[in-house]
Design a protein around this nucleic acid. Structure first.
Length: 329
DNA sequence: GACTCGTGGTC
DNA sequence: TGACCAAGAGT
């Protein structure tokens, strides 16, 4: 049990004195008068601890169920891009019941697909997922490919998603470096509050070196390290008291130093942005049975509305008809 | 590399 | 209250 003083404050940065280092590790506070040296923990020990924690703490998510399919895993990964699990789960369930396989989604009207996507956000992902379904039915005989290069060639599948599908759908070794894992590694190994704003090559290389050689162990490490970041080593207020590697964590041993890159993390603008305007248009098109006239969209800036409509048509998220705008068929 | 792309919950 | 952030990808 950790002393309460070891917990970061609710704002994620310690405001009290640096914690004492546990027995057997280099003491940061004592070393402060010379240099702070943190000995990186052994990867094998970290994996063992995180794996044991995962075995009892893992969430029961439908795309992890024994009857999951590679397609279901792929759908979940695309939906989860920049989107919290709690919002994805109900949409995923309805989606998979309606379109169980790639061929089913490929055959669906795009308007139905966009409506089913609902308010998950970034509706271009829905388009890419359907493009993905087309590619899989045409190029891969309806089966999600199990090769990294083939996965990467699919629309909407980047390095993260290709690795995640490789590990979670096929149980094979892959580097799975998402925002959760990046944060866990930055804290536990580098002793910093948050990773660099942008993923670096060195970071990927380090993550790759941490992945076990064995397929099953690698897949478990991917799931477990992500889950730790999602449930315990969270961005805002980490639950160090529940962390299986708290006693090894370089960030904690260094006294929870504040984020060095805080000034470089631009906050996402929202009110009055093109993005908000596009969202407003899409919501109107999803809700309508027929064409939506331009005047039927509530937006204060006419020029910005025109820009958003043109952009949505350009992105194939909307079509213009004589009577107004509609979702694409 | 810097930008862009939705939405809603959290603290 | 509003800034922050969530299993990224494409250009």
């Amino acid at each position: 049990m950790l002393h309460p003083g070891y917990e970061p404050s609710r704002r994620g940065v310690a405001r009290r004195a640096a914690p004492r280092a546990p027995h057997g590790t280099r003491c940061a506070s004592r070393a402060a008068s010379r240099r702070i040296v943190v000995v990186p923990p052994s990867p094998a020990l970290v994996r063992e601890r995180v794996g044991a924690w995962f075995a009892r703490a893992a969430r029961d998510l439908p795309w992890r169920a024994p009857d999951r399919t590679p397609w279901g895993v792929l759908v979940s990964e695309v939906m989860l891009q920049q989107t919290p699990v709690v919002r994805v789960e109900p949409v995923w369930r309805e989606w998979m019941a309606r379109w169980p396989g790639p061929a089913d989604l490929a055959a669906a009207p795009t308007a139905d697909v966009l409506r089913a996507w609902g308010r998950l956000g970034y509706p271009r992902r829905a388009l890419r997922l359907q493009d993905c379904a087309h590619a899989i039915t045409e190029r891969h005989d309806g089966q999600v490919p199990d090769g990294l290069d083939e996965l990467l060639a699919l629309p909407g599948v980047g390095a993260y998603t290709a690795g995640a599908v490789t590990a979670f759908a096929f149980g094979r070794r892959a580097v799975v470096l998402d925002t959760n894992v990046r944060r866990v590694l930055a804290r536990a190994l580098d002793g910093v509050a948050l990773p660099h704003p942008h993923q670096t090559v060195a970071e990927v290389r380090r993550a790759e070196a941490l992945v076990p050689q064995d397929d099953a162990e690698a897949a478990e490490w991917a799931a477990a390290s992500m889950e730790l970041g999602a449930l315990v080593c969270t961005a805002r207020s980490p639950r160090c008291g529940e962390c299986p590697v708290a006693d090894l964590c370089a960030w904690r041993l260094a006294g929870f130093p504040a984020d060095e890159h805080a000034a470089r993390r631009r906050t996402q603008a929202w009110a009055g942005t093109d993005r908000q305007c596009r969202g407003r248009v899409m919501a109107a098109l999803r809700a309508a049975d027929g064409p939506v006239p331009r005047a039927g969209i509530d937006w204060p800036d006419p020029a910005q509305l025109d820009r958003a409509l043109a952009g949505l048509v350009e992105d194939h998220l909307a079509e213009q008809t004589p009577d107004g705008y509609v979702l694409p068929r």
